[in-house]
């Protein structure tokens, strides 16, 4: 049984607590709140010890856990560095630290690409990997967010879909073209050209009013197509005036799937399905997307990573 420690806010403890009974071969053992007021939040994870700081966790309580899940803001890089120094496998945001440097450490680090573990995305990727769709030709993503779901930085907004595109096409794009108008900073659109004529067209808008978000992904291959589209998954609520659309929920399956993959990789002493190089590639493409926006030029990649 692998003992897990969580470093994060109360919200993270609550999210992981909600899926704790689904976890195989692992149990929560420790919690480090990132803010003092979250001290009681560890109760959501079950019977865990709460450490007052990451310093204490990695020194005095280092024998009480086997691996660490870090759910922290990108600025809190030191946390991940400590995990690496302590030799503990870590599941952490790809933007948490200088991930390239951490890749040199002899510690398993699984970047948290939770978006890959959505059941809808997994189904699309499975059909692609099984060859049902043929060679991928065009990936289309629309992601619209309300304020409460909008990440602070442009990098955080772009990274998930840049990663999805690279993942689906199995490499980094050769060309990057971005539309971002200064008068409308809530919107970005990027156009990626992959090898063999592959292409991705992605728009991210953060101007929805408070409430639900919207996500649509379709991929068209040489022999078929897959559509993971919120529009297809809406039910209707009638409560006066026009009916309201209710999206059928995919639950917490993405978080549970990602955590289980982390645990299984440790247990089976293998690489996780999300690698450091995936995160590094997505970060590099994200930087190119932003560079294209600021330079108003097509960014061309010399070598395919």
């Amino acid at each position: 049984m692998i003992r897990l420690a969580l470093i994060g806010q109360a919200k993270a403890a609550k999210s992981y607590g909600a899926i704790r009974t689904r976890l195989h071969r692992a149990v929560w053992a420790a919690f480090v709140p990132l803010t003092a007021s979250d001290g009681q939040a560890g109760q959501a994870l079950g019977q865990v010890t709460t450490a007052p700081s990451t310093e204490v966790l990695f020194t005095e309580q280092a024998n009480d856990f086997d691996a660490v899940v870090i759910d922290a803001d990108p600025g809190q890089a030191a946390v991940l560095a400590k995990a690496a120094a302590a030799g503990k496998p870590a599941l952490a945001s790809p933007l948490l630290a200088d991930i390239a440097a951490l890749g040199q450490a002899d510690t398993m680090l699984m970047p948290a690409h939770t978006w890959r573990f959505l059941p809808s995305i997994q189904a699309v990727k499975r059909s692609l990997d099984a060859g049902k769709l043929g060679a991928p030709g065009l990936l289309r993503i629309h992601r619209w967010l309300p304020p409460e779901a909008t990440p602070e930085s442009l990098t955080e907004r772009i990274l998930p879909d840049a990663d999805l595109a690279c993942w689906m096409f199995g490499g980094a794009p050769e060309k990057v073209w971005t539309l971002l108008t200064p008068s409308n900073p809530d919107y970005i659109q990027f156009h990626l050209g992959f090898a063999n004529g592959g292409m991705a067209m992605i728009d991210i808008a953060c101007s929805l009013p408070a409430g639900g978000d919207y996500f649509s992904l379709s991929i068209t291959g040489g022999t078929g197509a897959a559509y993971a589209d919120d529009h297809h998954n809406m039910n209707l609520l009638y409560a006066g005036d026009q009916p309201n659309a209710l999206r059928a929920s995919q639950g917490h399956t993405d978080l549970a799937g990602q955590l289980q993959e982390f645990v299984d990789a440790i247990h089976e002493q293998r690489q996780a399905t999300v690698l450091l190089k995936d995160a590094m590639r997505a970060i590099a493409v994200t930087e190119q997307i932003i560079e294209s926006a600021s330079s108003n030029h097509v960014i061309e990649q010399k070598e395919n990573s």
């Binding site: 289309r140 659109q189 067209m201 022999t223 078929g224």
Partner: peptide
């Protein structure tokens, strides 16, 4: 038989078109 086009309109709106003759098996 497949194309994606980023669009900048003269009133500042942006947009895109994805178009293709994607084969009978695709839908």
């Amino acid at each position: 038989d497949l194309a994606s086009v980023s669009l900048e309109l003269d009133n500042g709106t942006v947009g895109s078109l994805c178009i293709g003759r994607t084969g009978a098996a695709s839908h």
